[in-house]
Amino acid sequence: MDDLTEMLKGTLEGCVLEIIGSEETYGYAITRRLNELGFTDVVEGTVYTILLRLEKNGLVQVTKRPSGVGPPRKFYALNDAGHEQLATFWAKWEYVAARIDKLREGGR
């Protein structure tokens, strides 16, 4: 689906946390995963800025590893604070999603 940028703002970070949470991975792989999921507008640059923020906020552990071609790649894994942040994200997501569903179903 096109033009999700505005709507995805704020939730994309949670998606990236979730992806990193399941296994240590790097920017390009994360972007591919999001694209395959159907978020086709997400480019590597977007993921880069999110990873930078996660790193600055001390939520990830970063390891540089050599890659087959080109410069070494930065691999990201969640640390304890990152896992906590991920749990918070899902809690918030459920809260918002439940209420929005309710609204659509006409409930109160």
Binding site: G27, Y28, E44, G45, Y48, S67, V69, G70, P71, R73, K74
Partner: peptide
């Protein structure tokens, strides 16, 4: 760093 990775890809 990031750009160099993009170039390599």
């Amino acid at each position: 760093d990031f750009f160099e990775e993009g170039v390599a890809a």
